[in-house]
């Protein structure tokens, strides 16, 4: 695949310092986003999915801080810029946020103000990133609402967010994310708060928009079904690390990392037989502040190799290649090589 790389994240580390100690929310995360393709980021709560998204947009809540790594936007082009080096408040970063990179929230109301009409807010977003007249901005807002499949956009433009249903609100949220004509869209659990039929509508909308605009989509979710439906490549995260990276078919047909395998077996399936039990992963995700030594997954891993896993940290997955951060995978690769 020769798709253009839109964003290259390398060795990203984010820490939250407090009096109780340092919490490593991200511990060396690397991945690429490509134009026209979808990266699915999957993991349980506390794995660092959302922090990754917030880091790219430089909106990590205090006291969170990027301590290492690079986030190169449009690498190898004249517009290349390392987001990790920018001042979060700078004009350039504001141009990236909502401009070159759009964000779709889980709950669109967090991005929308209750005091202004949706039209007003979309126009505002349009005007921030384009030098056009108000009338043109209004036309653009109507156009955006039409693009995201909102019926009668000419009248809906004067509606307030609370007058809309959850599904319509998320469509408005998507329109907001598209207002700056972004090359990259980050969708953080965009359908988690929605009903299944609405979720299906929003997912197919996202796919259509991505194809039309050749957007690089980063889709963050905990739902393996959504990943299977949407992603081209998948990054499985656990305790602030990417533990497996692979094309979506491979992740589902031959998962490499024991965590991915366990996760897939633990997902309830609509194809289940009656009273079918699920295989479980013992325990729960540890607090990121109490990260286990060695491989962070070893206390819950059913396939661990003893001292190797408890003492040493496995190599991270090299970006752009399929693989898993696991000693067992390393060993079997060494055998076949």
């Amino acid at each position: 695949m020769a798709d253009r790389t839109s964003l290259a994240v390398r060795d990203l580390a984010v820490e939250f310092r407090s009096e109780q100690g340092v919490v490593r929310a991200l511990d060396g995360v690397s991945f690429d986003l490509h134009a026209g393709r979808t990266l699915g980021v999957v993991g349980e709560s506390g794995c660092g999915k959302s922090v990754t998204a917030r880091s790219i947009l430089r909106i990590v809540d205090r006291p969170g801080r990027i301590t290492a790594g690079r986030m190169i936007l449009d690498p190898g082009t004249p517009r290349e810029v390392d987001l990790a080096q920018l001042d979060p408040e700078s004009k350039e970063m504001r141009g990236v946020r909502g401009g070159r990179v759009g964000l779709i929230f889980q709950e669109p109301m967090t991005a929308l103000s209750v005091h202004y009409t949706v039209g007003n807010q979309i126009m505002e977003a349009v005007l921030q990133h384009a030098d056009i007249s108000k009338a043109e901005a209004q036309n653009r807002a109507i156009e955006l609402l039409r693009e995201v499949g909102i019926p009668r956009p000419e009248t809906r433009i004067s509606a307030y967010p609370f007058e809309l249903s959850g599904g319509l609100r998320q469509r408005v949220g998507i329109a907001m994310a598209l207002a700056g004509d972004p090359e990259i869209v980050i969708a953080d659990e965009p359908t988690t708060a929605l009903d299944v039929t609405t979720q299906a509508q929003i997912l197919s909308l996202l796919r259509r928009l991505q194809e039309e605009k050749n957007i690089a989509l980063m889709l963050i979710t905990h739902d393996m079904g959504v990943i299977a439906e949407m992603a081209d490549e998948v990054a499985v995260m656990y305790l602030g690390r990417v533990v497996e990276f692979a094309p979506v078919e491979e992740v589902f047909s031959e998962p490499r990392h024991p965590y991915t395998r366990a996760l897939l077996r633990a997902v309830p399936s609509i194809l289940a037989t009656p009273r079918q039990r699920l295989s479980t992963i013992g325990g729960a995700v540890p607090h990121p502040g109490a990260r286990p030594s060695g491989c962070p997954f070893h206390p819950r891993c059913s396939e661990q190799l003893g001292a190797l896993c408890t003492e040493q940290s496995p190599r991270p997955v090299p970006p752009g290649r399929s693989g898993a951060a696991c000693f067992k995978v390393d060993q079997s690769e060494a055998v076949t090589a």
Binding site: T197, Q199, D223, S269
Partner: peptide, 19 residues
């Protein structure tokens, strides 16, 4: 509407319209 955890089933579903 339920997405099955199986990429080979992708795109085989009809999405109900409306709300």
């Amino acid at each position: 509407a339920v997405p099955a955890p199986d990429p080979s089933r992708r795109g085989r579903r009809r999405v109900a319209q409306g709300e």
